[in-house]
Design a protein around this nucleic acid. Structure first.
Lengths: 339, 339
DNA sequence: ATGTAAAATGACAGCGCTTACAAAAACAAC
DNA sequence: GTTGTTTTTGTAAGCGCTGTCATTTTACAT
């Protein structure tokens, strides 16, 4: 497979110099029509494609962007990717997906590994991570920045000095919880995410504020931490319900994301609860299947495609701006007034 | 961002030649411990990362594989990608995702564009395509092959002389339809896919065989073609139902994939049908949310992760083998005996 | 014809690595 | 202190392009 043609082959075959071939390839104007035709003929006859490797060697710019995503299995990230990819192509860049800790778990290595590719920029989606990992992560980011511009998306600490589109975790939860309180719910569970020493990363902040405003008690059994997969939500909520007497069961649950929400719904049903009759479920991300669940899952739309596109803009603008991701609550059948 | 260190900087800083730095980077044995330590110190002090571009330039091999996927929004492809990516990493390769016709629609361009990246191999997932496009596609594949090994996955015509893992479209449908016939269904709809002049690509073949074996009539109104998204299935099935008198409505539907199945289910409900009471629904791909739908969606598991992994193996083995993807029917609540 | 500016083409020096091959250094055995 | 090995290090030639600069060709005016 290493026996493809080079610019020299084309030049020789067409009887011109490699510079001329290069000009034709790049569509430069200063080539006579006759020569251009001659070269073009050879190019298409031999199916010549210039090596982007060699190109990148000289031109220092690769026209390639990258995006680092935690897990593709969450359709949410597929949406962000799609948005980013489309935006990149529209601007003449390619967009390449790099999945995070999919085998090894050592993201340290992976973040920095990006440095070897000389991309023109990279978007990094940041999920919850333990506080102790965060320091290492920041170090890696700083190193990576020596090699290419970075834009962060997601759960970004305020102290990070990087262009970013961050999620207002507290704000989103605040809106979720207060909507449920408005519907008469008093026992509201919060499922998913992890503890953190950084307030701006804690969904709990919004949760507790809301409860306080409504003069509701904070019941720690209603708060459970877990990962972001369906199974995680299912296991977490299952054990919450198992650990509580029926008359203390929550009447509503706010989940980290839609997958976790699906898990909670499954667990609730297994315990004989009906949705939304006995318990309301509110997710986040508004993934494609949310409207098709029974009942349709109420969720928070994060406008992911737009978000991905905006991240590309930010990346290419070079500005060190920090924005907040917009969101919109989508009410659906899984949420109802407390009976 | 173009101001990162090169091997020369490291060499100068460490007081050695670039060859020595190169040796240290690649972990060659023939470097004295003292020198290695000295160089390593400089490398980590300056966060030096060799350029994979320059590396690829000389070594002709990039340790990078690619995978070309139609639409990431179908979780099915996310699974294939995950399997392929994990397998690739395990073998020391990176795996990069290239999305297909996400904006332009001209796959022609996109397939060939891959040639410019000098990857060590590429997996291409082939979906249904119109017969007339297929010829162009084959031409492109042949050109691309000059540059890198290819493995195809999916809907691959028998005549393609490429290593491939192909779907047995007819076989899958045959198993689906006969299962439903076994449950007493007589009016079975087939939704999704497209017409083709190549038998091995037609789901209809299995469909019609089954009907014939069971001495059931082929009713063309029960066969409807559509794309692979939820909306496509919804619209297609909706118009099928609208066009038929109630007493001729199908009692079961076999969908192209789970997304289409979700669409069919939604359309059926809109027409007042209950699942599986009035109509059974059988999908394909067994995407992650299938078990969480109400009722849980029966589907065909294509073992996608394994499939992706196998494709990587095939790619790296270099053998021109053609295999058939395994599948397994997963019965769930959306399918029931015909009442 | 002649001169001159503009257009077209070519020669060549990198880009940052790898990898022979050559040279030097370190070590042994005499 | 030689000489012969082995280990370690350095030199230099690419890899396939781009881009600068020099050169040739062409076009046009005189």
């Amino acid at each position: 497979m290493a026996d493809h043609y080079t610019i020299y082959d084309i030049a020789a075959e067409a009887g011109v110099s490699i510079a001329t071939v290069s000009r034709v390839m790049r569509g430069e104007a200063s080539v006579s029509p006759k020569t251009r035709a001659k070269v073009d003929a050879v190019i298409s006859r031999l199916n010549y494609r210039p090596s982007s490797i060699a190109r990148g060697m000289t031109s220092k710019t690769t026209n390639a962007l990258g995006i680092l995503l935690p897990k593709l299995l969450n359709p949410n990230y597929a949406m962000i990717f799609t948005g980013a990819n489309d935006a990149a192509r529209r601007r003449g860049y390619s967009m390449t997906l790099f999945p995070w800790h999919s085998i090894t778990g050592q993201q340290e290595h992976q973040t920095l590994a990006l440095a070897e590719r000389r991309l023109d920029g990279v978007i990094i989606c940041v999920e919850y991570m333990p506080d102790n990992e965060r320091e290492q992560f920041l170090t890696d980011l700083k190193k990576l920045r020596q090699y290419m511009p970075i834009v962060l998306i997601g759960c970004v600490p305020r102290t990070y000095d990087f262009p970013a589109i961050s999620y207002n975790m507290a704000g989103i939860v605040r809106e979720s919880v207060s909507a449920l309180i408005g519907l008469g719910h008093r026992r509201i569970a919060l499922v998913g995410g992890m503890e953190s020493d950084r307030d701006e990363l804690r969904r709990d902040v919004g949760y507790q504020e809301c409860l306080k405003d409504a003069r509701l008690p904070y019941v720690s059994s209603y708060r459970v931490f877990c990962g972001g997969r369906v199974e995680d939500g299912e296991a977490a909520f299952d054990s919450m319900l198992s650990g509580l007497q029926k008359n203390f069961w929550p009447t509503a649950v706010v989940a980290l994301n839609d997958l976790v929400a699906m898990g909670c719904a499954a667990a609730a049903r297994r315990h004989g609860l009906s949705i939304p009759g006995d318990i309301s479920v509110l997710g986040c991300d508004n993934i494609f299947c949310a409207p098709y669940l029974t009942p349709p899952l109420a969720s928070i739309d994060m406008h992911q495609q737009q978000l991905g596109a905006r991240a590309v803009e930010l990346l290419l603008s070079g500005e060190n701006i920090r924005e907040e991701a917009q969101w919109e609550m989508i009410m659906r059948g899984s949420v109802a007034p407390c009976r």
